[in-house]
Design a binder for these strands. Structure first.
Lengths: 190, 190
DNA sequence: CCTATTTTGTTGACTAAGCAACACGGGAGT
DNA sequence: ACTCCCGTGTTGCTTAGTCAACAAAATAGG
């Protein structure tokens, strides 16, 4: 899974960066539904044909990529060794998902039909993939799909719950309270 | 002459911008002599072959382009109508050359053999070309090369003098004092 | 001085990005 | 119903940028 895609053609890296930046800026101004591919490519100073031919099939693919990029960035700057399970990494993971949801909700113009569920899918997938690599290294003999699914849904659910009902409970306290319930699902494989 | 080159291929605009930015940064750290083309292209994330094939024959061409770009930018942001002579535009021109030299001297690591004369040539050329377009529109019937040469050298000389001996005289006062001497060379063509 | 290591330009084959043009479909009017 | 407009994907051709490799010049240093 991680780390971030490297040794990519420099041209590809450049235009992707431009597109991501343009898209981020637009999300701060308009709702996702109101953003067109033309908007994105115009602001990024990229030809629209290039957007389709070499990068994304449509604007939903761009949203996926955007979430993926942002989320991985957050994860990678916070974890020392992203690829192995530690109790601390699990804590960071839950914390990151909580803050990621909050950040998206504050940075982006809301009131959009499809936006939230698309985000949810992508984030949950990222968490799922990360947990699978962790579990695979803890105990290579057993199947990782089931416990990774359980934990991924639990983590996203917790983050969603926190970001909606964030009254009277600090994020830190919330994480400490919820963490053991998730950890027990994973540590039986250690 | 002016305005700045437009409707250029977007890719060309991008890589030139990257190269210029990289070069500016490096000039703040090293002397021009110590900067290699590799330095520039590496920092700009551009392939070295691209630098040569599509843009500059060597690093001296880059320096020329850099001066040209910076100088025109300064001029164009200060003058309302760059393409016509007015007494005020002439004042701005002299002022800009003075401040340009000061800026270059403070922003760039000095102690370089070739650097200063290369700058001088390029700036003087920019001034000369601008004056020629002014004169050509004031009186299309007479030759513009001689008076433009006189005024261009005078202006650069004044700026150089000021930036060396900037004791006890504000730039504004200096310009007001020197301006009429240059203006008389031009206004006889109005 | 001579050698070893950069840096310089240049080459040709390959790939990404630009551009103009197209057919298509979904509104918004009138 | 009917256009008219606008955003969507897609296409073929052109051009800019990448990459690895090269010979030649410049620099360093022992």
């Amino acid at each position: 899974m991680l780390p971030m895609e490297e040794k990519l053609d420099p041209r590809v890296k450049r235009t992707r960066t431009l597109i991501l930046q343009s898209f981020s800026d637009l999300l701060a101004e308009k709702s996702f539904d109101a953003i067109t591919v033309q908007d994105v490519t115009e602001r990024a100073q990229i030809n629209r044909a290039t957007f389709y031919k070499k990068h994304f099939v449509d604007k939903y693919a761009l949203l996926d990529y955007w979430v993926q990029h942002l989320f991985r960035q957050e994860i990678e700057t916070r974890m020392l060794d992203v690829c192995h399970y530690t109790p601390d990494n699990l804590r960071i993971l839950l914390l990151t998902v909580c803050e990621f949801l909050s950040k998206v909700r504050t940075d982006c113009k809301q009131s959009q039909r499809q936006f939230e569920p698309l985000i949810e899918n992508q984030v949950k997938n990222q968490v799922y993939e990360l947990l699978k690599t962790w579990l695979g290294k803890m105990n290579p003999s057993v199947s990782t799909e089931i416990p990774a699914t359980v934990a991924a849904w639990a983590i996203y659910g917790l983050a969603s719950h926190y970001s909606h009902a964030k009254k009277g409970l600090t994020l830190k306290a919330f994480v400490e309270e919820a963490l053991p319930l998730v950890a027990v699902n994973l540590e039986q494989f250690a």
